[in-house]
């Protein structure tokens, strides 16, 4: 599917989706409420067949957080980037690890490093940090006077 086709088909599915201009791949911005539903369609609809979630990450924009999903389809070889915009004070988004199982570890990593809560995640424990860790290291305002070296 070409970029334009992807844009029109996804616009039908998720109302309120906005598109970023330029870039390597089409980037769609959506709200967290719409994401699990859209994800399920993207995976199961034979039109899209986005079966390969190759990168999940979070970004702290100071005003808000985004969780970025990089999806590709092994059948059609088209790629889509989905950005879910989250409230910084109470970041919550539904999990997609029942759709793409690779998301389980990635979401656990984002949960502890960015403080994003993934609703209905089967195993929401710390993966990397100790259980008693305070704060979310990859947020921009995280300060650790002992371990962090500023250049």
């Amino acid at each position: 599917m070409t970029r334009e086709e992807l844009q029109t088909s996804i616009a039908e599915l998720a109302s309120g989706a906005t598109w970023d201009e330029g870039g390597q791949w089409p980037v769609v911005n959506i709200l967290p409420e719409a994401w699990p539903e859209l994800a399920r369609t993207l995976k199961s609809d034979p039109l899209f067949a986005f079966d390969y979630l190759f990168c999940v990450t979070g970004v702290d924009w100071k005003s808000h957080l985004t969780v970025v999903y990089h999806l590709t389809s092994l059948r059609f070889r088209h790629t889509l980037v989905v950005k879910v915009k989250l409230d910084r004070a109470k970041p919550q988004v539904g999990t997609v690890c029942d759709i793409w199982r690779t998301a389980e570890l990635h979401e656990r990593e984002i949960r502890e490093l960015f403080g994003v809560e993934f609703l209905h995640h089967p195993d929401p424990r710390n993966l990397i940090l100790p259980d008693v860790w305070d704060g979310f290291p990859l947020r921009k305002d995280y300060e650790d006077p002992v371990n962090m070296i500023k250049l």
Partner: peptide, 12 residues
């Protein structure tokens, strides 16, 4: 798996 024993937070 339990990770993090040599996590250096290279991304940060």
């Amino acid at each position: 798996p339990h990770l993090g024993y040599i996590h250096r937070s290279i991304e940060k």
